[in-house]
Design a protein around this nucleic acid. Structure first.
Lengths: 336, 336
DNA sequence: GTGCATCATTGAATCGATTCACTTAGCCGG
DNA sequence: CCGGCTAAGTGAATCGATTCAATGATGCAC
């Protein structure tokens, strides 16, 4: 089955390849008769444009690369959807990559995207990846950091004030009269985690007599949350914290599963619990989960917006930082 | 910023472009000295392979297209992950497309993938899309149907026996002594929905005196489930069903939210509830949800497996149908 | 009828990596 | 010392869509 190119279409329609190309890209330049003859030929032969050839000529692909920490987390799929919708308006596609909270995978995706000559890269960066990202941008790929406040102002970024969010969560727990807080979360290479913890630390510091312990987890998944919850449940009752702030909702749901499984720990009576992200499943949990809400889809669409602006501006572009404020959502897991 | 191609690298290293290509693709053919000289030049100039040029020459891309009904549904992200892992082993990437239960979007993704000359397409098809898929395959793109049993045996497919699953769910409810069943689900263009309903119908038919009503929804989301649940709750108590089978877990969680919000309907005492897919959040629900489990990741990896086989076999390939059996997972939403 | 502008169309050159028929160098056995 | 062999490297041709300077055709004004 010989593949069909513009050449075959041109021959069939009795025109030149240039005209076929015009039919595809600027039909206005072509006379009505020729247009329909060429379209008929395309239909007849089943011609399908070869995107590789197109991109080669154009020098850039019509896609945006998006690297997130975990596609299993609804927060990121919501964010991705926001990005997709905005990208679609500009005629662009979003390629979704999952770093799985792993530097190696993140790096592999960045390499892949660069080989594809993507229009730009949106990334929820892990650790201090500054170097690779800087190189990427130097070579001409616009790059926007997502869900991450960055000290280095040379990148555009869209973020939520996670320190504020952490403060909000811990402040809420303290306001309820809780004094022995635990923060469940992990991988201090993930900035979101350390910022949320930092916010909690500040809230605790403002209230003498309130303590904060940290329960480390290996990742931000339901399973890890369950382990952490089980570890807490296994302690004698008086050594348990009276409030838990989980670094995200997946962890919080895991903790909740561990607590409610044997009915030994009651939420919120024995331990109040709050998560972060306010994913759709949080409100449907065993005990509806209090959480810190972030505008996930808006973050995604804004990131694309900044990316397009950077791509347009070219050399003389000025990075922009957009910061959203999170809000507290109170449900049954903290107040009875 | 002039872009760096193999030509520049070749000049810098003092070799021919052919040799640079060999360094990239079959280093064994190149002597040690030349190898390191070329690698140094690549490093120095910051050369990055242009994937478009590569693909153009190769005629195929190194990606697989995957079109799912809803990326927001954890079942599909699990499936996608299974596919990605298997694809990575073969050096392929997975491009994830979200049809959003819409024929137009599905069609757009298929066109896009065909223009990209993907290695193959995995799809959870909507409606009777036979024609477009047949054309796609005729033009040489291997295609595997996912999560869909197909009567037409000309396609390879990986599926779960949804009729059996539906029977399992309804049978379970009937076995508990429930007699007024309701099926919540919608868009009869989605085969999974009609199959699950068909299974439920059969189970009901086997038990005289048991009735089954159908509550139509516009999609398979938590929000739609909530509306359906509210509609049921709004009825006088004696006109409500005593058991609900939701077409998937998202719907079931929505129904559960509606039921438990005012505390008017108790699950499972007043109405037993069962979902489908057994997503991770099902076990963490207000009332842990009974469900029908499908091996999501395995479905994804198997689909890639079949795809690779089809790609390898070429013209004389024989389509294969793999069918997995779902299993019943009983939790508190059906038994107290 | 000539000059000029407009519109439609042409086709060779281009993007960059890969391929493959071909050259060159080095080595070995007889 | 020669024929035959392998290993290393070469560079023009190729993939297919797009672009753009050049050509042809048509109409209009004077």
């Amino acid at each position: 089955m010989a593949s069909i190119s513009v050449r075959e279409v041109a021959a069939e329609a009795g025109v030149s390849v240039g005209t076929v190309s015009n039919v595809l890209n600027s039909p206005a330049k072509v006379s009505a008769g020729t247009l329909s003859r060429v379209q008929a030929a395309i239909e007849l032969l089943g011609f399908v444009r070869n995107d590789a050839a197109r991109q080669l000529r154009a020098g850039r692909s019509r896609s945006i690369g998006l690297v997130v920490l975990d596609v299993g987390n609804p927060f990121f799929t919501d964010l991705a959807r926001g990005a997709e919708d905005r990208a679609a308006q500009a005629g662009l596609t979003v390629l979704l990559g999952n770093s799985d909270e792993t530097v190696a995978r993140q790096s592999a995706y960045l390499d892949l995207f660069e080989e594809q000559r993507v229009h730009g890269v949106l990334i929820t960066p892990l650790g201090e990846t500054g170097e690779q990202l800087t190189r990427l941008r130097l070579r001409g790929t616009p790059t926007v950091l997502v869900d991450r406040q960055i000290e280095d102002r040379s990148f555009s970024s869209v973020a939520v004030d996670d320190v504020f969010g952490g403060h909000l969560a811990a402040g809420h727990l303290i306001g309820l009269g809780r004094t022995r807080l635990a923060f469940v979360g992990g991988q201090h290479t993930i900035r979101q985690v350390t910022d949320r913890l930092e916010g909690a630390r500040r809230a605790v510091a403002e209230h003498p007599g309130v303590t904060l312990e940290v329960v480390e987890t290996a990742s931000l998944s339901v399973l890890e949350g369950r382990s952490a919850g089980e570890a807490i449940r296994a302690r004698p009752a008086h050594e348990r914290p009276d409030a838990v702030f989980a670094a995200n909702d997946l962890l919080a749901l895991g903790v909740l599963q561990a607590f409610s499984m044997l009915g030994e720990v009651r939420v919120p009576q024995d331990i109040a619990l709050i998560g972060y992200d306010d994913i759709a499943f949080a409100s449907a949990a065993v005990v509806p989960l209090s959480s810190i809400r972030q505008p996930s889809a808006l973050i995604g669409s804004t990131a694309v917006e900044l990316l397009l602006r950077e791509a347009e501006a070219g050399a003389d572009f000025v990075p922009e930082q957009v910061v959203f404020q999170p809000e507290l959502v109170v449900r049954a897991s903290t107040v009875s």
